[in-house]
Design a protein around this nucleic acid. Structure first.
Lengths: 243, 243
DNA sequence: GTCGCCCCTTCCGCTCAATGGAAGGTAAGT
DNA sequence: ACTTACCTTCCATTGAGCGGAAGGGGCGAC
Protein backbone atom coordinates (compact mmCIF):
# COMPACT_ATOMS: atom_id res chain seq x y z
CA UNK A 1 0.00 0.00 0.00
CA UNK A 2 3.05 2.19 0.03
CA UNK A 3 4.77 2.10 -3.32
CA UNK A 4 7.35 4.66 -2.31
CA UNK A 5 10.52 4.53 -4.33
CA UNK A 6 12.60 4.21 -1.23
CA UNK A 7 10.77 1.23 0.15
CA UNK A 8 10.91 -0.45 -3.22
CA UNK A 9 14.62 0.05 -3.50
CA UNK A 10 15.06 -1.31 -0.01
CA UNK A 11 12.88 -4.28 -0.82
CA UNK A 12 15.24 -5.05 -3.64
CA UNK A 13 18.08 -5.10 -1.16
CA UNK A 14 15.93 -7.18 1.15
CA UNK A 15 15.56 -9.79 -1.54
CA UNK A 16 19.08 -10.84 -0.66
CA UNK A 17 19.76 -12.97 2.33
CA UNK A 18 21.98 -15.67 3.71
CA UNK A 19 20.64 -18.21 1.25
CA UNK A 20 20.30 -15.80 -1.66
CA UNK A 21 23.73 -14.40 -2.05
CA UNK A 22 23.41 -13.56 -5.73
CA UNK A 23 20.30 -12.91 -7.79
CA UNK A 24 19.48 -12.16 -11.40
CA UNK A 25 17.49 -9.11 -12.29
CA UNK A 26 14.34 -11.14 -12.86
CA UNK A 27 14.69 -12.93 -9.57
CA UNK A 28 15.14 -9.62 -7.84
CA UNK A 29 12.04 -8.24 -9.50
CA UNK A 30 10.04 -11.31 -8.57
CA UNK A 31 11.20 -11.43 -4.98
CA UNK A 32 10.55 -7.73 -4.49
CA UNK A 33 7.23 -7.94 -6.30
CA UNK A 34 8.11 -5.28 -8.86
CA UNK A 35 7.57 -5.01 -12.59
CA UNK A 36 10.72 -5.89 -14.44
CA UNK A 37 11.19 -2.47 -15.95
CA UNK A 38 10.90 -0.80 -12.58
CA UNK A 39 13.27 -3.22 -10.96
CA UNK A 40 15.68 -2.69 -13.79
CA UNK A 41 15.80 1.00 -13.23
CA UNK A 42 16.08 0.82 -9.48
CA UNK A 43 18.71 -1.88 -9.58
CA UNK A 44 20.60 0.34 -11.98
CA UNK A 45 20.63 3.12 -9.45
CA UNK A 46 21.63 0.86 -6.60
CA UNK A 47 24.39 -0.48 -8.76
CA UNK A 48 25.64 2.93 -9.77
CA UNK A 49 25.87 3.94 -6.14
CA UNK A 50 27.65 0.77 -5.16
CA UNK A 51 24.96 -0.84 -3.07
CA UNK A 52 24.88 -3.68 -5.56
CA UNK A 53 27.68 -5.17 -7.58
CA UNK A 54 27.44 -7.21 -10.69
CA UNK A 55 29.20 -10.50 -11.27
CA UNK A 56 30.59 -11.50 -14.64
CA UNK A 57 27.60 -13.81 -14.93
CA UNK A 58 25.30 -10.82 -14.80
CA UNK A 59 23.92 -11.69 -11.41
CA UNK A 60 23.80 -9.05 -8.73
CA UNK A 61 25.28 -9.26 -5.27
CA UNK A 62 25.35 -6.89 -2.34
CA UNK A 63 27.94 -4.25 -3.11
CA UNK A 64 31.06 -3.20 -1.33
CA UNK A 65 29.76 0.19 -0.44
CA UNK A 66 27.35 -1.19 2.09
CA UNK A 67 30.24 -2.88 3.90
CA UNK A 68 31.95 0.40 4.36
CA UNK A 69 29.11 1.88 6.35
CA UNK A 70 30.73 0.63 9.49
CA UNK A 71 28.70 -2.50 9.76
CA UNK A 72 31.68 -4.50 10.85
CA UNK A 73 32.48 -2.04 13.59
CA UNK A 74 31.59 -4.35 16.46
CA UNK A 75 33.66 -7.13 14.99
CA UNK A 76 36.59 -4.83 14.30
CA UNK A 77 36.45 -3.15 17.65
CA UNK A 78 39.41 -2.71 19.90
CA UNK A 79 37.73 -5.19 22.16
CA UNK A 80 38.25 -7.97 19.70
CA UNK A 81 41.86 -7.07 19.11
CA UNK A 82 42.60 -6.77 22.78
CA UNK A 83 40.94 -10.08 23.50
CA UNK A 84 42.41 -12.13 20.67
CA UNK A 85 45.51 -13.42 22.44
CA UNK A 86 43.59 -14.20 25.59
CA UNK A 87 41.01 -16.16 23.67
CA UNK A 88 43.87 -18.17 22.30
CA UNK A 89 45.28 -18.78 25.76
CA UNK A 90 41.87 -19.75 26.99
CA UNK A 91 41.44 -22.23 24.22
CA UNK A 92 44.83 -23.67 25.00
CA UNK A 93 43.84 -24.11 28.62
CA UNK A 94 40.39 -25.56 28.04
CA UNK A 95 40.31 -26.94 24.48
CA UNK A 96 36.72 -25.74 24.37
CA UNK A 97 34.98 -23.48 21.88
CA UNK A 98 35.62 -19.94 23.08
CA UNK A 99 33.22 -17.04 22.64
CA UNK A 100 33.55 -13.31 23.03
CA UNK A 101 30.27 -11.44 22.91
CA UNK A 102 28.69 -8.08 23.59
CA UNK A 103 25.11 -7.10 24.17
CA UNK A 104 23.33 -5.43 21.30
CA UNK A 105 19.90 -4.38 22.41
CA UNK A 106 18.18 -7.48 23.67
CA UNK A 107 20.46 -9.94 21.98
CA UNK A 108 23.91 -11.40 22.28
CA UNK A 109 26.18 -10.35 19.45
CA UNK A 110 29.11 -12.66 18.96
CA UNK A 111 32.28 -10.69 18.34
CA UNK A 112 34.71 -13.55 18.15
CA UNK A 113 34.72 -17.27 18.27
CA UNK A 114 37.49 -19.77 18.45
CA UNK A 115 36.72 -23.39 17.75
CA UNK A 116 38.87 -26.46 18.19
CA UNK A 117 39.34 -29.47 15.98
CA UNK A 118 36.64 -31.33 17.80
CA UNK A 119 33.93 -29.23 19.27
CA UNK A 120 30.38 -29.49 20.43
CA UNK A 121 27.88 -28.42 17.80
CA UNK A 122 27.56 -24.70 18.27
CA UNK A 123 25.10 -22.46 16.53
CA UNK A 124 26.85 -19.19 17.13
CA UNK A 125 29.09 -17.53 14.57
CA UNK A 126 30.93 -14.26 14.47
CA UNK A 127 28.40 -11.53 13.80
CA UNK A 128 25.42 -13.68 14.61
CA UNK A 129 22.93 -12.94 17.35
CA UNK A 130 21.19 -15.11 19.89
CA UNK A 131 18.69 -14.44 22.65
CA UNK A 132 20.14 -13.28 25.95
CA UNK A 133 18.44 -15.80 28.18
CA UNK A 134 19.64 -19.05 26.65
CA UNK A 135 23.39 -18.68 26.45
CA UNK A 136 26.15 -18.34 28.99
CA UNK A 137 27.48 -15.08 27.67
CA UNK A 138 23.91 -13.88 27.30
CA UNK A 139 23.12 -14.47 30.95
CA UNK A 140 26.23 -12.60 31.98
CA UNK A 141 25.37 -9.65 29.80
CA UNK A 142 21.78 -9.72 30.99
CA UNK A 143 22.83 -9.86 34.62
CA UNK A 144 24.71 -6.59 34.23
CA UNK A 145 22.31 -4.90 31.81
CA UNK A 146 20.17 -1.86 32.65
CA UNK A 147 16.74 -2.50 34.08
CA UNK A 148 14.98 -1.54 30.85
CA UNK A 149 16.82 -4.18 28.89
CA UNK A 150 16.10 -6.83 31.46
CA UNK A 151 12.41 -6.00 31.42
CA UNK A 152 12.35 -6.24 27.66
CA UNK A 153 14.27 -9.51 27.64
CA UNK A 154 12.01 -11.06 30.28
CA UNK A 155 9.10 -10.31 28.00
CA UNK A 156 10.28 -12.83 25.45
CA UNK A 157 11.77 -15.89 27.03
CA UNK A 158 11.38 -18.15 24.06
CA UNK A 159 11.83 -21.88 24.64
CA UNK A 160 14.57 -23.28 22.42
CA UNK A 161 15.30 -26.67 23.97
CA UNK A 162 13.43 -28.51 26.70
CA UNK A 163 16.02 -27.12 29.11
CA UNK A 164 15.70 -23.46 28.21
CA UNK A 165 14.84 -21.33 31.22
CA UNK A 166 11.56 -19.64 30.38
CA UNK A 167 10.20 -18.84 33.84
CA UNK A 168 10.97 -15.20 34.67
CA UNK A 169 11.31 -15.94 38.37
CA UNK A 170 13.82 -18.69 37.78
CA UNK A 171 15.86 -16.59 35.39
CA UNK A 172 15.84 -13.66 37.81
CA UNK A 173 17.19 -15.94 40.51
CA UNK A 174 19.91 -17.17 38.16
CA UNK A 175 20.92 -13.63 37.29
CA UNK A 176 21.17 -12.82 40.96
CA UNK A 177 23.56 -15.72 41.38
CA UNK A 178 25.55 -14.60 38.37
CA UNK A 179 26.12 -11.25 40.01
CA UNK A 180 26.95 -12.87 43.32
CA UNK A 181 29.29 -15.55 42.04
CA UNK A 182 30.75 -13.79 39.02
CA UNK A 183 29.93 -16.38 36.40
CA UNK A 184 26.97 -17.85 34.56
CA UNK A 185 26.29 -21.36 33.35
CA UNK A 186 23.86 -23.04 30.99
CA UNK A 187 23.04 -26.69 30.46
CA UNK A 188 21.73 -27.55 27.00
CA UNK A 189 19.51 -24.49 27.08
CA UNK A 190 20.46 -23.36 23.61
CA UNK A 191 21.35 -26.60 21.90
CA UNK A 192 21.35 -30.16 23.16
CA UNK A 193 24.71 -31.54 24.14
CA UNK A 194 26.19 -28.13 24.79
CA UNK A 195 26.82 -26.59 28.19
CA UNK A 196 28.52 -23.29 28.79
CA UNK A 197 30.23 -21.11 31.36
CA UNK A 198 30.76 -17.41 30.97
CA UNK A 199 32.21 -14.51 32.91
CA UNK A 200 31.95 -10.74 32.55
CA UNK A 201 34.74 -8.65 30.99
CA UNK A 202 35.49 -5.19 32.29
CA UNK A 203 35.62 -3.47 35.63
CA UNK A 204 32.81 -1.42 37.08
CA UNK A 205 30.91 -1.52 33.80
CA UNK A 206 30.66 -4.81 31.97
CA UNK A 207 31.61 -4.28 28.35
CA UNK A 208 31.54 -7.86 27.13
CA UNK A 209 31.25 -11.47 28.15
CA UNK A 210 33.70 -14.29 27.69
CA UNK A 211 32.42 -17.84 27.54
CA UNK A 212 33.25 -21.38 26.62
CA UNK A 213 31.08 -24.23 25.43
CA UNK A 214 31.72 -27.80 26.54
CA UNK A 215 29.84 -31.08 26.35
CA UNK A 216 29.68 -31.47 30.12
CA UNK A 217 30.10 -29.08 32.98
CA UNK A 218 29.91 -31.27 36.05
CA UNK A 219 33.47 -32.49 35.82
CA UNK A 220 35.71 -29.49 36.30
CA UNK A 221 33.63 -26.38 36.41
CA UNK A 222 35.90 -24.79 38.97
CA UNK A 223 38.96 -25.07 36.76
CA UNK A 224 37.11 -23.68 33.75
CA UNK A 225 35.75 -20.74 35.68
CA UNK A 226 39.24 -19.99 36.96
CA UNK A 227 40.66 -20.08 33.44
CA UNK A 228 37.87 -17.83 32.22
CA UNK A 229 38.47 -15.33 34.95
CA UNK A 230 42.16 -15.18 34.26
CA UNK A 231 41.47 -14.45 30.61
CA UNK A 232 38.75 -11.93 31.39
CA UNK A 233 41.03 -10.07 33.77
CA UNK A 234 43.72 -10.03 31.12
CA UNK A 235 41.36 -8.59 28.56
CA UNK A 236 40.14 -6.03 31.06
CA UNK A 237 43.67 -4.92 31.82
CA UNK A 238 44.57 -4.66 28.16
CA UNK A 239 41.48 -2.58 27.46
CA UNK A 240 42.19 -0.33 30.41
CA UNK A 241 45.81 0.26 29.44
CA UNK A 242 44.76 1.07 25.88
CA UNK A 243 42.11 3.44 27.24
CA UNK B 1 22.89 16.49 -10.74
CA UNK B 2 20.81 13.41 -10.05
CA UNK B 3 18.18 14.15 -7.47
CA UNK B 4 16.61 10.74 -7.72
CA UNK B 5 14.94 9.56 -4.55
CA UNK B 6 16.97 6.43 -4.51
CA UNK B 7 20.32 8.13 -4.73
CA UNK B 8 19.31 10.52 -2.02
CA UNK B 9 18.27 7.75 0.28
CA UNK B 10 21.54 5.99 -0.40
CA UNK B 11 23.48 9.16 0.25
CA UNK B 12 21.88 9.29 3.65
CA UNK B 13 23.21 5.82 4.32
CA UNK B 14 26.54 6.91 2.93
CA UNK B 15 26.72 9.67 5.49
CA UNK B 16 27.62 6.97 7.97
CA UNK B 17 31.09 5.59 8.14
CA UNK B 18 33.73 4.21 10.44
CA UNK B 19 34.12 7.53 12.21
CA UNK B 20 30.47 8.50 12.08
CA UNK B 21 28.73 5.65 13.77
CA UNK B 22 25.71 7.62 14.90
CA UNK B 23 24.27 10.83 13.50
CA UNK B 24 21.41 13.17 14.34
CA UNK B 25 18.82 13.98 11.75
CA UNK B 26 20.32 17.40 11.11
CA UNK B 27 23.80 15.98 10.70
CA UNK B 28 22.46 13.44 8.27
CA UNK B 29 20.75 16.14 6.27
CA UNK B 30 23.88 18.27 6.22
CA UNK B 31 26.18 15.44 5.27
CA UNK B 32 23.88 14.26 2.52
CA UNK B 33 23.26 17.79 1.33
CA UNK B 34 19.51 17.58 1.70
CA UNK B 35 16.89 19.95 3.07
CA UNK B 36 15.89 18.97 6.55
CA UNK B 37 12.31 18.19 5.64
CA UNK B 38 13.38 15.91 2.84
CA UNK B 39 15.93 14.15 4.97
CA UNK B 40 13.33 13.72 7.65
CA UNK B 41 10.96 11.95 5.34
CA UNK B 42 13.59 9.72 3.80
CA UNK B 43 15.16 8.85 7.12
CA UNK B 44 11.68 7.97 8.30
CA UNK B 45 11.33 5.48 5.50
CA UNK B 46 14.76 4.01 6.03
CA UNK B 47 13.95 3.68 9.69
CA UNK B 48 10.61 2.05 9.09
CA UNK B 49 12.24 -0.52 6.89
CA UNK B 50 15.00 -1.21 9.36
CA UNK B 51 17.92 0.22 7.44
CA UNK B 52 18.37 2.73 10.23
CA UNK B 53 17.77 2.35 13.93
CA UNK B 54 17.24 5.02 16.46
CA UNK B 55 19.05 5.28 19.75
CA UNK B 56 17.37 6.51 22.91
CA UNK B 57 19.27 9.75 22.38
CA UNK B 58 17.43 10.27 19.12
CA UNK B 59 20.50 9.72 16.98
CA UNK B 60 20.35 7.32 14.10
CA UNK B 61 22.62 4.37 13.49
CA UNK B 62 22.80 1.78 10.74
CA UNK B 63 20.03 -0.69 11.37
CA UNK B 64 20.09 -4.39 11.95
CA UNK B 65 18.32 -5.21 8.76
CA UNK B 66 21.30 -4.33 6.65
CA UNK B 67 23.35 -6.86 8.57
CA UNK B 68 20.99 -9.59 7.64
CA UNK B 69 21.55 -9.13 3.94
CA UNK B 70 24.35 -11.61 4.12
CA UNK B 71 27.10 -9.08 4.37
CA UNK B 72 28.95 -11.16 6.86
CA UNK B 73 28.80 -14.16 4.60
CA UNK B 74 32.52 -14.25 3.83
CA UNK B 75 33.37 -13.99 7.49
CA UNK B 76 30.83 -16.62 8.46
CA UNK B 77 31.75 -18.96 5.66
CA UNK B 78 32.51 -22.60 6.11
CA UNK B 79 36.05 -21.68 5.22
CA UNK B 80 36.48 -19.72 8.38
CA UNK B 81 35.01 -22.45 10.52
CA UNK B 82 37.06 -25.14 8.90
CA UNK B 83 40.21 -23.11 9.28
CA UNK B 84 39.76 -21.92 12.84
CA UNK B 85 41.50 -24.79 14.63
CA UNK B 86 44.35 -24.80 12.16
CA UNK B 87 44.90 -21.10 12.59
CA UNK B 88 45.20 -21.78 16.26
CA UNK B 89 47.73 -24.55 15.68
CA UNK B 90 49.66 -22.31 13.37
CA UNK B 91 49.78 -19.58 15.92
CA UNK B 92 50.97 -22.05 18.50
CA UNK B 93 53.76 -23.14 16.18
CA UNK B 94 54.88 -19.69 15.07
CA UNK B 95 53.64 -17.20 17.65
CA UNK B 96 53.07 -14.85 14.73
CA UNK B 97 49.99 -12.96 13.68
CA UNK B 98 48.01 -15.36 11.50
CA UNK B 99 45.81 -14.33 8.57
CA UNK B 100 43.22 -16.12 6.53
CA UNK B 101 42.10 -14.24 3.44
CA UNK B 102 40.21 -14.62 0.21
CA UNK B 103 40.27 -12.59 -2.95
CA UNK B 104 37.37 -10.25 -3.52
CA UNK B 105 37.71 -8.65 -6.89
CA UNK B 106 41.06 -6.95 -6.97
CA UNK B 107 41.56 -6.87 -3.24
CA UNK B 108 42.44 -9.10 -0.35
CA UNK B 109 39.54 -9.63 2.02
CA UNK B 110 40.63 -10.75 5.46
CA UNK B 111 38.37 -13.48 6.74
CA UNK B 112 40.10 -14.21 10.00
CA UNK B 113 42.98 -12.96 11.98
CA UNK B 114 44.68 -14.26 15.06
CA UNK B 115 47.03 -12.02 16.94
CA UNK B 116 49.37 -12.79 19.78
CA UNK B 117 50.16 -10.85 22.92
CA UNK B 118 53.07 -9.20 21.23
CA UNK B 119 52.74 -8.70 17.55
CA UNK B 120 54.12 -6.58 14.79
CA UNK B 121 51.92 -3.62 13.96
CA UNK B 122 49.45 -4.94 11.44
CA UNK B 123 46.93 -2.91 9.54
CA UNK B 124 44.63 -5.73 8.54
CA UNK B 125 41.47 -6.57 10.44
CA UNK B 126 38.71 -9.07 9.87
CA UNK B 127 36.52 -7.78 7.08
CA UNK B 128 39.02 -5.21 5.91
CA UNK B 129 40.55 -5.11 2.46
CA UNK B 130 44.01 -4.42 1.20
CA UNK B 131 45.59 -4.30 -2.24
CA UNK B 132 46.68 -7.63 -3.69
CA UNK B 133 50.21 -6.68 -4.56
CA UNK B 134 51.53 -5.59 -1.20
CA UNK B 135 50.68 -8.45 1.14
CA UNK B 136 51.74 -12.05 1.38
CA UNK B 137 48.24 -13.48 1.13
CA UNK B 138 47.54 -11.01 -1.64
CA UNK B 139 50.44 -12.21 -3.74
CA UNK B 140 49.34 -15.80 -3.32
CA UNK B 141 45.79 -14.99 -4.34
CA UNK B 142 47.03 -12.93 -7.25
CA UNK B 143 49.35 -15.69 -8.41
CA UNK B 144 46.42 -18.03 -8.81
CA UNK B 145 43.86 -15.47 -10.01
CA UNK B 146 42.36 -15.41 -13.50
CA UNK B 147 44.18 -13.40 -16.12
CA UNK B 148 41.58 -10.62 -16.11
CA UNK B 149 42.07 -9.99 -12.41
CA UNK B 150 45.82 -9.93 -12.77
CA UNK B 151 45.61 -7.43 -15.59
CA UNK B 152 43.38 -5.21 -13.52
CA UNK B 153 45.60 -5.48 -10.47
CA UNK B 154 48.73 -4.67 -12.45
CA UNK B 155 47.04 -1.50 -13.53
CA UNK B 156 47.15 -0.07 -10.03
CA UNK B 157 50.31 -0.98 -8.21
CA UNK B 158 50.14 1.75 -5.66
CA UNK B 159 53.26 2.43 -3.61
CA UNK B 160 52.60 2.06 0.08
CA UNK B 161 56.05 1.86 1.63
CA UNK B 162 59.44 2.42 -0.03
CA UNK B 163 59.65 -1.35 -0.39
CA UNK B 164 56.33 -1.90 -2.13
CA UNK B 165 56.76 -3.66 -5.45
CA UNK B 166 55.33 -1.34 -8.06
CA UNK B 167 57.12 -2.51 -11.20
CA UNK B 168 54.84 -4.84 -13.15
CA UNK B 169 57.72 -6.91 -14.47
CA UNK B 170 59.13 -7.46 -11.04
CA UNK B 171 55.76 -8.44 -9.61
CA UNK B 172 55.10 -10.80 -12.50
CA UNK B 173 58.40 -12.49 -11.81
CA UNK B 174 57.52 -12.81 -8.13
CA UNK B 175 54.15 -14.35 -8.96
CA UNK B 176 55.89 -16.88 -11.18
CA UNK B 177 58.06 -17.86 -8.25
CA UNK B 178 55.03 -18.10 -6.01
CA UNK B 179 53.49 -20.62 -8.36
CA UNK B 180 56.75 -22.52 -8.66
CA UNK B 181 57.66 -22.62 -5.00
CA UNK B 182 54.22 -22.67 -3.43
CA UNK B 183 54.60 -19.69 -1.15
CA UNK B 184 54.86 -15.91 -1.28
CA UNK B 185 56.82 -13.48 0.85
CA UNK B 186 56.85 -9.76 1.45
CA UNK B 187 59.33 -7.56 3.21
CA UNK B 188 57.94 -4.36 4.64
CA UNK B 189 55.93 -3.80 1.48
CA UNK B 190 52.71 -2.99 3.32
CA UNK B 191 53.97 -1.58 6.58
CA UNK B 192 57.44 -1.02 7.88
CA UNK B 193 58.73 -3.60 10.29
CA UNK B 194 56.39 -6.29 9.02
CA UNK B 195 57.36 -9.19 6.79
CA UNK B 196 55.05 -11.97 5.75
CA UNK B 197 54.88 -15.45 4.31
CA UNK B 198 51.76 -16.96 2.80
CA UNK B 199 50.65 -20.15 1.11
CA UNK B 200 47.59 -21.10 -0.94
CA UNK B 201 44.70 -23.08 0.53
CA UNK B 202 42.81 -25.58 -1.57
CA UNK B 203 43.65 -28.14 -4.20
CA UNK B 204 43.37 -27.53 -7.93
CA UNK B 205 41.56 -24.26 -7.35
CA UNK B 206 42.92 -21.91 -4.73
CA UNK B 207 40.05 -20.81 -2.49
CA UNK B 208 41.98 -18.81 0.08
CA UNK B 209 45.39 -17.88 1.35
CA UNK B 210 46.95 -18.46 4.71
CA UNK B 211 49.66 -16.16 5.92
CA UNK B 212 51.66 -15.02 8.89
CA UNK B 213 53.29 -11.73 9.71
CA UNK B 214 56.64 -11.56 11.49
CA UNK B 215 59.20 -8.85 12.19
CA UNK B 216 61.92 -10.68 10.32
CA UNK B 217 61.95 -13.44 7.76
CA UNK B 218 65.60 -14.21 7.24
CA UNK B 219 65.93 -16.31 10.33
CA UNK B 220 63.73 -19.34 9.85
CA UNK B 221 61.71 -18.94 6.74
CA UNK B 222 61.89 -22.65 5.98
CA UNK B 223 60.30 -23.61 9.27
CA UNK B 224 57.54 -21.05 8.90
CA UNK B 225 56.74 -22.15 5.38
CA UNK B 226 56.58 -25.73 6.55
CA UNK B 227 54.21 -24.84 9.37
CA UNK B 228 52.04 -22.85 6.98
CA UNK B 229 51.85 -25.72 4.54
CA UNK B 230 50.86 -28.18 7.21
CA UNK B 231 48.04 -25.90 8.28
CA UNK B 232 46.96 -25.17 4.71
CA UNK B 233 46.82 -28.86 3.91
CA UNK B 234 44.75 -29.44 7.02
CA UNK B 235 42.29 -26.76 6.05
CA UNK B 236 42.11 -28.12 2.54
CA UNK B 237 41.35 -31.60 3.80
CA UNK B 238 38.68 -30.33 6.19
CA UNK B 239 37.03 -28.36 3.40
CA UNK B 240 37.14 -31.32 1.06
CA UNK B 241 35.63 -33.72 3.58
CA UNK B 242 32.85 -31.24 4.35
CA UNK B 243 32.25 -30.80 0.62
C1' DG C 1 11.20 34.62 33.44
C1' DT C 2 11.84 35.01 28.43
C1' DC C 3 14.62 35.28 24.79
C1' DG C 4 17.40 32.98 21.42
C1' DC C 5 19.10 28.93 19.48
C1' DC C 6 18.87 24.47 17.62
C1' DC C 7 16.73 20.40 16.63
C1' DC C 8 12.74 17.74 15.35
C1' DT C 9 8.16 17.24 13.22
C1' DT C 10 4.03 18.23 10.29
C1' DC C 11 1.57 20.38 6.50
C1' DC C 12 0.26 21.00 1.68
C1' DG C 13 0.02 22.66 -3.25
C1' DC C 14 3.17 22.34 -7.24
C1' DT C 15 5.88 19.74 -10.28
C1' DC C 16 8.91 16.70 -12.16
C1' DA C 17 10.72 12.24 -11.48
C1' DA C 18 9.13 7.63 -11.22
C1' DT C 19 6.18 4.47 -13.50
C1' DG C 20 5.33 0.20 -16.23
C1' DG C 21 3.29 -1.59 -20.62
C1' DA C 22 5.10 -2.49 -24.82
C1' DA C 23 8.54 -3.45 -28.07
C1' DG C 24 13.22 -4.79 -29.42
C1' DG C 25 17.58 -7.48 -28.54
C1' DT C 26 20.33 -11.45 -26.98
C1' DA C 27 21.35 -16.00 -25.64
C1' DA C 28 20.40 -20.74 -24.70
C1' DG C 29 17.56 -24.85 -25.01
C1' DT C 30 14.54 -28.20 -28.14
C1' DA D 1 13.69 -22.44 -36.94
C1' DC D 2 10.82 -22.09 -32.98
C1' DT D 3 10.25 -21.40 -27.99
C1' DT D 4 11.40 -19.65 -23.74
C1' DA D 5 13.54 -16.68 -20.60
C1' DC D 6 16.26 -12.94 -19.66
C1' DC D 7 17.84 -8.18 -20.22
C1' DT D 8 17.40 -3.43 -21.99
C1' DT D 9 15.27 0.85 -23.92
C1' DC D 10 11.47 4.02 -24.86
C1' DC D 11 8.00 7.41 -23.63
C1' DA D 12 3.35 9.41 -22.39
C1' DT D 13 0.90 9.57 -18.05
C1' DT D 14 0.37 10.71 -13.20
C1' DG D 15 0.91 10.53 -8.45
C1' DA D 16 4.79 10.44 -5.38
C1' DG D 17 8.34 13.29 -3.84
C1' DC D 18 9.49 17.88 -2.86
C1' DG D 19 10.81 21.56 0.37
C1' DG D 20 9.50 26.25 2.19
C1' DA D 21 7.07 27.53 5.96
C1' DA D 22 5.17 27.12 10.34
C1' DG D 23 4.68 24.88 14.83
C1' DG D 24 6.58 22.44 19.04
C1' DG D 25 9.97 21.26 22.53
C1' DG D 26 14.33 21.34 25.09
C1' DC D 27 18.30 23.90 26.90
C1' DG D 28 21.34 27.47 28.19
C1' DA D 29 22.19 32.55 28.49
C1' DC D 30 21.05 36.79 30.08
Amino acid sequence: MAPSVTSRALDLLGAFGPEHRSLTLSELARRAGLPLATAHRLVGELHKWGALARLESGEYVIGRRLWDLGLLAPVQSGLRQAASPFLHDLYGATLATVHLAVRDGCEVLYVDRLAGHVSVPVVSEVGSRLPLHATGVGKVLLAYAPEAVRAEAFGRLRRITPYTVTQPARLAEQLRRVRAEGYATTGEEMSLGACSVAVPVGGDTVVAALGIVVPDLRRDKARLVAALQVAARGIGRTLASAE
